[in-house]
């Protein structure tokens, strides 16, 4: 009986200890833009390595999708922080949303196009003429490609446009020459598949032609930013610490292990290649601090969207960038 009592009191004590250790933590939700994969290595790593906990935060990192939009969740109060691309942020600002950008994760946009090396290399925008180009209608790749067309004076008659979706069959069957991909995820998968078939690929990066369309960035609501500045500061610092550590080549094995726990779809080698590709986009130069907001690129993104009539009026996005 005494033994049973002792176990009971020990259990109670342990429970109280755990509860106390979490009592000082602020719980918050962080909505990603997409599913758990190597593209969100830093987010996964910050959580796994306890950087949030060290900052006194209990962060629920949640997967995103087109239906699980971070901006909607911020407004509805379901999330405190989120990841959104610049076009989403600018569109939301145009419609009266109060969004603050805290950090820009991708310094180089992952939105690129893949094509085979047995086709002439695209060295100038003129080289796009006559190609069969894949575009996700309604996606930001459509906006980017339209901007490139406008820049080069290319009309829709000069190219063939193919509406793409999730399966790559038309590209494999060569029905489409130039296929839109996220460089560090689908790009790696397609490159790997084609190389196994003895085919080499090129990537067409709009940034090389002066179009810098900003991708994933960390956002919060204006309300949270104003009312809970300490929490915002702690969260951003812990998150970027996670990204810095995740992009450190010496941590590669550990990072890959943490990603594997969340993303069981890809194989080990693909994940490793995706991590290398992600590093190129997040920290293209050693001198660039992770999270740096490229104000000029944001302004250019806004200009592109205005020109493409995706927004009705200037939103002065630079006023919402708080690095």
């Amino acid at each position: 009986m005494k033994k049973k009592n002792l176990i009971f009191w020990m259990f109670l004590f342990a429970t109280a200890l755990v509860a106390t250790s979490h009592a000082g933590e602020t719980e918050l939700n962080y909505r990603l833009k997409w599913l758990f994969n190597t593209s969100v290595a830093g987010d996964i790593y910050a959580e796994a390595k306890g950087y949030f906990r060290e900052a006194g935060l209990k962060v629920n990192v949640r997967e995103g999708s087109p239906e699980k939009n971070a901006i909607n969740e911020l407004e509805l109060g379901h999330s405190d922080f989120g990841v959104a691309s610049a076009d989403q942020v600018i569109r939301a600002l145009d419609k009266g949303a109060k969004i603050i950008v805290l950090a820009q994760l991708f310094q180089v946009s992952p939105m690129q196009w893949i094509y085979r090396t047995d086709q002439p290399q695209i060295k100038t925008l003129e080289d796009l003429k006559g190609r069969n180009i894949g575009i996700t209608f309604g996606g930001n790749d459509e906006t980017v490609m339209n901007t490139l067309f406008a820049k080069a004076g290319i009309t829709k008659k000069d190219v063939k446009i193919f509406g793409v979706r999730f399966d790559f069959t038309p590209f494999f069957k060569r029905e489409v020459d130039v296929w839109p991909v996220y460089f560090n995820s689908q790009g790696v998968i397609l490159k790997d598949k084609l190389e196994k078939e003895g085919e080499k690929v090129y990537f067409f990066n709009p940034a090389d032609f002066g179009v810098n369309f900003v991708a994933n960035s960390v956002i919060t609501s204006e309300k949270t930013w104003k009312n809970r500045p300490d929490m915002v500061k702690k969260f951003t610092a812990a998150l970027l610490k996670g990204w810095e550590a995740a992009m450190e080549p010496s941590n590669e094995a550990d990072v890959l292990m943490e990603i594997k726990k969340k993303d069981k779809e890809s194989n080990d080698e693909l994940r490793r290649l995706q991590l290398i590709a992600t590093r190129e986009l997040i920290k293209p130069l050693a001198s660039i601090k992770i999270g740096t907001i490229d104000t000029d690129a944001w302004k250019q993104t806004e200009t592109i969207m205005l020109d493409e009539k995706q927004i009705k009026k200037p939103v002065h996005v630079e006023t919402m960038l708080k690095n």
Binding site: I71, N72, E75, L76, A92, K95, G96, A97, K98
Partner: peptide, 10 residues
């Protein structure tokens, strides 16, 4: 009721 922007509900 929730003072949502046109982005969430037009």
């Amino acid at each position: 009721v929730l003072s949502l922007s046109d982005y969430v509900i037009p």
